[in-house]
């Protein structure tokens, strides 16, 4: 069964650049509330352009690299399907609807943002955005924090940025380097053999 599925995937005809653009344009237009679940739904389940394992690999890579997870994923999937033109089509399609919408929203906010009604509405929206952002961080933490040392690095980063106003860049480079060295390959191997 899996052999047939594998053969099918390899024999699948090449996807055209226009097709890639259209698919990502759709995802960019419908992905309310976070793009990653929609990317998974459309690319893995509907289109079958990448399998589940590959998608998870691409996602973890997107989270490690700088840049937004959604656009990094678009680049990786586009690249896999059609090289550089595929990657370009994917990221442009993905960004276009949201960018156009926020361009208009920005103009409207600039004009009407200080009206009492919109100010009140935005207070509710901003509070919700804090809850949503916290949820995103917790979700990511559940998946990738394994040891007490990991929790210490999380705390160290938060304290550096929020308490001591270390710039995000130095927190990233400084704590990141210590944390990577902590996960030194030889240590990881000895920990794994326990």
């Amino acid at each position: 069964m899996s052999d047939i599925a594998k053969q099918g995937a390899e024999a699948a005809p090449a996807v055209s650049v226009a097709r890639i653009f259209r698919e990502f344009l759709i995802i960019g237009a419908i992905s309310f509330g976070g793009a990653v679940p929609y990317l998974r739904g459309r690319l893995v389940e509907t289109e079958g352009w990448v399998d589940d394992k590959e998608f998870v690999e691409m996602l973890s890579m997107s989270q490690t690299l700088p840049g937004l997870n959604a656009t990094n994923l678009a680049i990786l999937v586009g690249q896999k399907l059609r090289g550089a033109p595929g990657a370009a089509a994917a990221i442009v399609g993905m960004c276009l609807p949201g960018a156009a919408l926020m361009y208009v929203a920005g103009i409207l906010y600039w004009r009407h943002g200080d009206h009492a009604a919109s100010a009140a509405t935005l207070k509710g929206v901003a509070a919700a955005a804090v809850g949503l952002a916290l949820f995103t961080a917790i979700q990511l933490g559940r998946r990738s924090l394994e040891t007490r040392a990991d929790l210490a690095f999380v705390a160290l980063t938060v304290i550096a940025v929020d308490r001591y106003h270390v710039s995000v860049l130095w927190a990233l480079l400084g704590v990141g380097l210590i944390s990577i060295l902590w996960r030194h390959p030889r240590r990881a191997k000895s920990a794994g053999s326990q």
Binding site: T157, D162, L172, S179, H184
Partner: peptide, 24 residues
């Protein structure tokens, strides 16, 4: 080192997200 980088950056990126939440 690939796995070390991936595993090592994860807690830092979560810390940065939380710091962003706090600022906001």
């Amino acid at each position: 080192w690939r796995d070390s980088i991936q595993a090592g950056l994860a807690p830092v990126s979560i810390g940065l997200l939380l710091a962003g939440c706090y600022t906001m």
